[in-house]
Computed example of a mutant assay.
Amino acid sequence: MKNATTVWRDLIHKPFFWGIIAIVALLLLNVLKDPGYLALTVNPNNGHLVGNVIDILRQAAPIMMIAIGMSLVIATAGIDLSVGSLMAVAGAVSMEFLRSTDGTSAGSALAAVGLSLAITALLGAVNGVLVAYVGLQPFIATLVLMLAGRGIAKVITGGQNTAASNDTYRWIANGYVVGIPVVFLLAVAIVIAVAWVVRRSALGLMIEAIGINPRASRMAGIKPKGLLLTAYILSGVLAGIAGVMSVGSVMTVDISRTGYQLELDAILAVVIGGASLMGGKFSLSGAFVGALLIATLDKTVLFLGVSSSATPAFKATVIIVICLLQSERVRAWFRRRRTPASPPSAETSEMKEVAA
């Protein structure tokens, strides 16, 4: 049976440990300003839970989706800069479909979601083809779609912010089940499903293998091209789900703002979760915690009244501290500084005298 010291050492090496510590620290900082920050109340009109924690869970859901997709792509030694633009495309497709068909039924909502995910899966496949079969660098291939994606969304909506009305579609982002936001429960279910597939099958190992060494994995019988294509399609689908979640809260797609710079938040969530940007290593649980941290950090910035000009510096400081705490080299340096140098033994002193 492991003792407490061994358990603690194992725990601090988990990818998500320092992310959880950071979330707790940020929440405590907010509690110091307002002791009732973590309070949850029940809305007497509908029985839903209301509070800052609920807001954080709702805000974290879209980030979780793109972070999970980004984890799989980064594990292949790639990157997907187009996820924010694909969120805008998904929102544009669904809002334009509901507006043009005047759909108010549950079937119309499901059709809008299905069409959105089909389009983003196709765009994700374009990224996969450019990377796996054409041979473009992932940064360049996805940067192209990052720029072109919002142009596609503008073409779909005619360059205008599009609004629609559908109770079922709105329920996806604003509804509750047992007092918990549906959007968060849906995100958790998707994360569990993806984690089950990639960890209970050989898919996760094969993705990590091509990230470590594509040539060696190919010689071992793995087909890197098909796996790369699959990873980018999954990233596109998950970005589409994130887009549906984002526009569903207000039932309006803002072409210039929906998903804006969320690709950076996704990358940060993946890094905080312990994944390597060099590929070959990923942690979906770490990405999940990283997304929660990003949402908590954004909420903290607003709650503390940090000015917009200082917000990037505040976020960067928190993230750098977390990355330093995750670094084994940094922790080893602190251990060496904390441990006093032991005095030389009698045997060592005698050997030095003989040598002299």
Rank of each mutant, 00 (worst) to 15 (best):
G151Y: 00
V126L: 15
V155E: 14
A132R: 05
T76C: 15
S116K: 03
I68Y: 13
L72C: 01
L145Q: 10
D102V: 04
G69Y: 07
P62H: 13
L136S: 10
T104F: 00
A141H: 08
V83R: 07
V155H: 09
A164P: 03
T120A: 04
A112E: 09
T104V: 06
H48F: 15
L143I: 07
L143W: 09
T104Y: 00
G149R: 14
V129R: 03
V89W: 01
D55Q: 14
V93E: 03
A75W: 14
E96V: 09
G151I: 02
L98Y: 12
M87R: 10
S105R: 14
I156T: 08
D102C: 01
R99A: 01
I68T: 10
H48P: 02
Q59I: 03
Q59T: 13
R150M: 15
G135P: 06
N46K: 12
S108F: 15
A163K: 14
T104D: 01
F97V: 01
L136N: 08
L143T: 04
A67I: 03
L145H: 02
G114A: 04
V83I: 13
L143Y: 07
S85N: 08
G103N: 07
L98V: 00
G128H: 06
G107H: 05
R150L: 10
G151S: 13
E96W: 00
L115P: 11
Q160F: 00
L86A: 07
G47A: 15
A61T: 12
V89A: 02
S108L: 00
S82N: 09
G69L: 12
T162Q: 09
Q160V: 02
Q160D: 14
L57S: 15
Q137D: 11
S116D: 11
A77L: 10
I63Q: 02
I63K: 11
A90E: 06
P138Q: 14
A60N: 05
P62A: 02
Q59Y: 05
G151K: 03
A118S: 10
A141F: 07
Y133S: 13
A75R: 08
T162M: 07
M146T: 10
A153T: 09
F97K: 00
N46T: 15
L81C: 01
Q137W: 08
G124S: 14
N46P: 12
L49S: 14
M146K: 12
A111Y: 01
T101G: 04
T120D: 08
D55Y: 02
G128L: 10
N46G: 13
A148L: 15
L123P: 08
A121M: 06
A164S: 06
L122S: 02
Q59W: 02
S100W: 07
Y133N: 12
A112P: 00
G51A: 04
D55T: 05
S100G: 06
A163S: 10
I74K: 12
D102G: 11
Q160Y: 01
A132M: 05
L117N: 04
N127C: 05
G107F: 02
L57N: 10
V73L: 09
A121V: 04
G91N: 08
A164N: 00
D80I: 07
P62C: 09
S105P: 11
G69M: 13
G124L: 08
L81V: 05
P138W: 04
G114F: 00
L147I: 15
L49K: 12
I63G: 06
A61H: 14
Y133E: 07
A148M: 15
S100H: 06
A90C: 07
M65N: 05
G78Q: 11
D55K: 14
L123W: 04
G84Y: 11
S71G: 11
I152G: 05
